[in-house]
Write a protein that binds this DNA or RNA. Sequence first.
DNA 1: TAATATCTGATAATGATTATCATTCTTTAA
DNA 2: TTAAAGAATGATAATCATTATCAGATATTA
Lengths: 127, 127
Amino acid sequence: MKTPNHSQANILKVLEQTKKPLSAQEIWAEIQKQGQKIGVATVYRNLESLKIKGLIQIRTVHNQAIYSLVSEKQNFATCLQCGERTPLGISLAQSVEAPTLQSQAFEVYYHTLEVFGLCSPCQERSP
Amino acid sequence: MKTPNHSQANILKVLEQTKKPLSAQEIWAEIQKQGQKIGVATVYRNLESLKIKGLIQIRTVHNQAIYSLVSEKQNFATCLQCGERTPLGISLAQSVEAPTLQSQAFEVYYHTLEVFGLCSPCQERSP
DNA sequence: TAATATCTGATAATGATTATCATTCTTTAA
DNA sequence: TTAAAGAATGATAATCATTATCAGATATTA
Ligand SMILES: [Mn+2]
Ligand SMILES: [Mn+2]
Ligand SMILES: [Zn+2]
Ligand SMILES: [Zn+2]
């Protein structure tokens, strides 16, 4: 795995500091605000690299990619309308049905258990 | 839940027939190919409606939304590079670690268990 | 039937992401 | 150490999936 360069370190730092998921544009603005000079293309390029390395996670809300560190929290309830995503904070076993039980505050439509990584061809393809 | 109109029925039919996930543009082209006249805006609008109703599922690959019916299959391994997504076809309990055991064909980075639906505010917001 | 609300399609506008390319930084090999 | 080769960067233009607009069509209601 290629070692993180300076740009990638800056991106990771911003994600650590801010805590909450950020768009590429927001990350770009934040790095600049911190006095670093960086181009928007570089942000996109390194976000892609960090993604392939499995260091950051991406989801799309309203046609905008939202980036965050790969964290411990991996159980979420995501609203299909507003995109809000709240950690469930419960164990895997009880995760699926729990929200339906919780006072109907969240109306469950379906769930997904997804494993992310690299398929065999892509492992060779990305040195 | 509002009853599916004609456009929505056409979209669902295409997704059923084609089996595989399709982009909005592909769905649009397919409906036209089947002789139906429809505007691209209508396709997008009704895809959004079907999403809010929980009838279809969306994921984003290379900055393009890919739509599919909400199916039984809900356990997947997704490649971060090419976006290929293969059903795991295993039970929830063993899902998470199984891929790591399977001959390293797929290199696991992380996983997500996600429940989709409507949050409380959005339930009222969408009549 | 007429008034009203909803849906549709053609088209323009948007904007996040990607491509381009000259320049700068880094690594490699003489 | 130095020069060539390679990789990363930044400014900017281009792309294109998606959204907004709005006039006309269609459905619903009274
Ligand atoms: Mn988990
Ligand atoms: Mn399941
Ligand atoms: Zn919501
Ligand atoms: Zn792959």
